[in-house]
Amino acid sequence: MCLAVPSKVIEIKNSVAVVDVDGVRRDASLMLLDDVKLGDYVIVHAGFAISKIDEDAAHQTIQDMRDMLKFADNNIMTLDNVNPTVTDPNPDANY
């Protein structure tokens, strides 16, 4: 019932948005959510947009995990006496 995947708002008409998930489009009512703009990512539940994805928070969560990864890598490498300079190949690769 609950679509856990965020949908992108590509059209808004009279309180109804057209949202897109990987090329599949459907309508989502905006009756339960204010301030939705084109290009926003929203969570849609049973035909209603119920939440906007906070993009800063989304990036921060992933960044925090990458920092953990760096820390873990650093530890392993130090233990192995390998050059501990670890560079993140491209932190924004997925965005």
Binding site: V5, P6, G23, I62, M65, M68, A72, N94
Partner: peptide
Amino acid sequence: MALKYVSEYRDSQLAKVLIESI
């Protein structure tokens, strides 16, 4: 196409770190 706000949260390398930490 990678789904935005989905594929990032399925990254196996990051999952491994979390599992190790747990």
